[in-house]
Design a protein around this nucleic acid. Structure first.
Lengths: 342, 342
DNA sequence: AGTTAAAATGACAACGCTGTCAATGCTCTA
DNA sequence: TAGAGCATTGACAGCGTTGTCATTTTAACT
């Protein structure tokens, strides 16, 4: 029933160690030997035992995914991407949700790492932005790859995957400007998130490049939540507000949906009286009425590349993977919540 | 740096094996010895190595979570529940998303099981309803716990966690009936899902108990998707339809949101002209306008109990867990999308 | 106190693989 | 064709636990 490396070795007529070399794709194995072994592997349908590999080897076949993000769609996408690579490469994935506020996070972290010696970690925002965490990992000498909001070509080229929120926000703002909107509101996400400042700067840069004044009264500090989107729109559109805003950029889809909700309460017609845009293209940007114009982030692809980048590090120089993309720019998806200024 | 069972043994002045007994909570260890060992464990902050335990032991410390469900909120909740128990009990979780249509699912499954000898599996709907899967697992002699839509006290009392959708649908329908609605539409989910028939039967039972006629024309076959909710509402409310429907039960929140969307397109006011209810209480039932009346399923708690049930099986008789709840009934949450018939 | 059974503990192999290092096979040169 | 030198392969120990079984300690009796 249970097939071990020994069974394969016997069938192939080689030593255990040679089989090990084959399944680990080590160089110095003669082509012919390789084929013989692979044939035996297939015939017996052999699957190397992960626990044994983790125990015996110097580097393990387990990586971790760490997140602190209330957005289920985001987490699932990231997870699926990493998972699919793990499956392909024979790795195991340990999921570690945590909240940064947890006082015992560091301890938690160490425990996880001790329990299953990890080959590395994929860090997603906002945790990936926390230097206390990366310091801790550096100290523990653990490989990691960070998915970050930001523009490429900064420091750690080979430890980071960048999502160019700046550019995406620039483009979505430009989209609005081209439709004749001048007074464009912006509902920010959490101040602590890098994506918030990147998106805000992209918005400001677009305004500047189109000779449009930035007005601080157009900017509302939200929290990436539906409720803060509601409040943001109410604040920006308040009666006694002479701002004459004709478009609102939501920092993410959830806040844009909140803004939509608030507009409805105020009897404002979308997109005739007000254009609203989101960010992220999560499923519910298609489930609002009207459907949201937004910026599409391909999170599953992003996280796949993050996993690949991590694997190249843990495997050292043997089997390099050269086609890794380390910079992504969300692309604009125009739907029904935005339109020309009337 | 790395603390092993030997270090603990040395510090505590006992043998390796005794430490093993203590961390596995085996009986026959003297109280005094137990304390001494635990002290050493704490002092050294010892964490047993999972790979070694999995390799050496007859039963492993890894369980799997299998799902085939496009609903991110559901999956995350289930996952978090299982994860939190795993953390408490020192288990590791392997996530296995799959789609039932995948031809090679069986092979996939076997591969996963070979790679990391699993102590057991938590199956979530709709996979948990597939007898081909449970048969496969029985064959492979793998423990599993199923989360199922259904009424308690059926067969496998100790392998299943039931979610009483029947009762919840009965109650939500009753809620509508008490508000004077007679012509109540129902948008079903996927026919293949057990939850669909359970909810439908609950709806029918409530109607019957309130002397209200069931009309097949009130029932629309949807797909648990937003789009099918849109189509369902359009069909049920079509102009040439003399049904005079004043309320619609969505089979889940997503379809209810779709129905809401369709109503808006048709210029129907909610809840004045039409009451709409959902099912599941996912976050976006709070993010529609108006907010959805729905049935709240505590998925994280449900999955925690599923994990606990699984652990009692894998651990055999030693450390039984007696407070496991195996039957849950979603509770009605009344919000703004439902109201009295005018 | 002496015997016996039961409870508590320990010694050691084994789990399935990888790392190390030694042994063998092969190619190329002179 | 011998020898050097590199490419390929193999023998064996060891990773950190748990299972088995032997041994010691304790408790419970005469």
């Amino acid at each position: 029933m249970k097939v071990t490396i020994n069974d394969v070795a016997k069938l192939a007529g080689v030593s255990m160690k040679t089989v090990s070399r084959v399944i680990n794709k080590e160089p110095s194995v003669r082509k012919k030997t390789f084929d013989v072994v692979m044939e035996a592997v297939n015939e017996l349908n052999y699957q190397p035992n992960l626990a044994a590999r983790n125990l015996a080897g110097t580097s393990s076949f387990t990586i971790g995914l760490v997140y602190d993000n209330p957005n289920a769609y985001y987490v699932i996408d990231m997870q699926n991407g990493v998972l699919s690579r793990c499956k392909d490469e024979g790795y195991e994935l340990v999921i570690h949700p945590c909240s940064y506020s947890e006082a015992n996070m560091e301890h938690d972290f160490k425990t996880m790492i001790k329990r299953s010696r990890l080959a590395g970690l994929v860090l997603t925002p906002p945790l990936s932005e926390q230097s206390s965490i990366t310091n801790l990992l550096d100290e523990l000498n653990i490989h990691y790859v960070r998915v970050l909001s930001g523009r490429p070509n900064e420091e750690d080229q080979d430890t980071c995957i960048y999502v160019n929120d700046f550019k995406a926000a620039y483009e979505i703002t430009t989209h609005l400007l081209k439709h004749g909107h001048k007074n464009i509101g912006f509902i920010c996400g959490d101040k602590e998130h890098k994506s918030t400042s990147e998106r805000l700067e992209g918005y400001k840069a677009a305004l500047a490049d189109h000779n449009t004044q930035t007005n601080d009264a157009f900017i509302y500090d939200g929290k990436y939540s539906f409720e803060s989107g509601v409040e943001g729109a109410q604040a920006l559109l308040a009666d006694d507000n002479k701002l004459a805003i004709t478009a609102i950029l939501g920092g993410n889809d959830e806040m844009a949906a909140g803004a939509l909700f608030a507009s409805r309460l105020m009897g404002i017609k979308i997109p005739e009286q007000l254009s609203i845009t989101g960010f992220e293209n999560s499923p519910f940007s298609r489930q609002t009425w009207p459907k949201l114009t937004t910026a599409h982030q391909e999170n599953d692809v992003i996280s796949q590349h993050a996993a690949r980048l991590l694997f190249t590090k843990t495997r050292g120089a043997r089997n390099q993977d050269k086609d890794i993309i380390t910079s992504f720019t969300p692309s604009i998806v125009v739907r029904d919540s935005s339109g020309p200024k009337l």
